[in-house]
Amino acid sequence: MTNTALSLPQIRKLIQRQNVFDQFVVLALLAAALSSVIVTAGILYILISESVSFFSQVPLGEFFNLVDPKWTPLFDDKNFAIITLISSTLVTTGVSVAIGIPMGTIIAIYLSEFATEQVREWVKPILELLAGVPSVVFGYFALQTVTPFMQRIVLGVQMFFAPGRDEFDYYQLPGFNMLSAGIVMGISIIPLISSISEDAMRAVPKQMREGSFAVGATRLQTSFNVVLPAAISGIIASYILGISRSLGQTMIVAVAAGTQPIYTWNPLDGAATISTFIVEVAKGDIEHGSLEYNTIFVAGLALVAMTLAMNLLGHYLSKRVREVY
């Protein structure tokens, strides 16, 4: 038998070499982590510096004008009331949340608490497929399928409650409207919400469910009274991610909600959101460094601020209600 044991100096040398290697790897990991911080800081720097140059030409009062808001930076008579774009961003996001959160949560509860293994194996890949649909496809789905459908529904509702008029005397849902865009945006965030919520629910320990069953609760009672509250921080995180994605969603709204920057809170109207405005302007030929050019960045900054506010709120909420088990 050969003696494989190392001498003490050999061991020390080995450890020393290993320590140098470990330090190198830790530094590399740190650099990788820092790169995301640097990119974020860089983006914020560009947004803020361009916005500073914007605000040197446009008074803050004009930007936050709520009295007679107009957004016409590309016209001769320039107006810069950001609320015009924020309102439509919030409306489309609101519609999408009204669709995506209930649907996503219900699907998550079903998959986590009720579905058999076989059903789950079928449904999950299909949901993932839905998540993989490009947003431009969703956009045209909204414009070509959902909008005509909603137009018929809006007409049908009117004919039901006030029958007898000529078809063209009724209110017609415009071809570009925030409702259809919001609905499809809601569909597009369902997979995100359902998969994160389902993960959170499945992470709830089995014993906690059994505790509920043991006092005589049904599966439904257990899901809603025990599993849902136990998984709430993960569920809220999924909502926040969904809302953030809707706020920043561009293609669906640009295709289906129209490009007119109109100040409105009515989902039946068509109006440009912040992201729609940014692509519209970026597509056109505007002079680099001009005021029009600066508006892209100030709109972008407003969008980042909204998303950031959402994330902070989500962080606060999920921390406040976090459960330990």
Binding site: Q207, M208, E210, A214, G216, V226
Partner: peptide, 20 residues
């Protein structure tokens, strides 16, 4: 089984209070 569990209670190995 629900009727049975309503009549027969159980305490588990690890304490499992509800998030309430």
């Amino acid at each position: 089984p629900i009727e049975v569990r309503m009549r027969i209670g159980m305490v588990f190995q690890k304490p499992n209070p509800f998030p309430k």
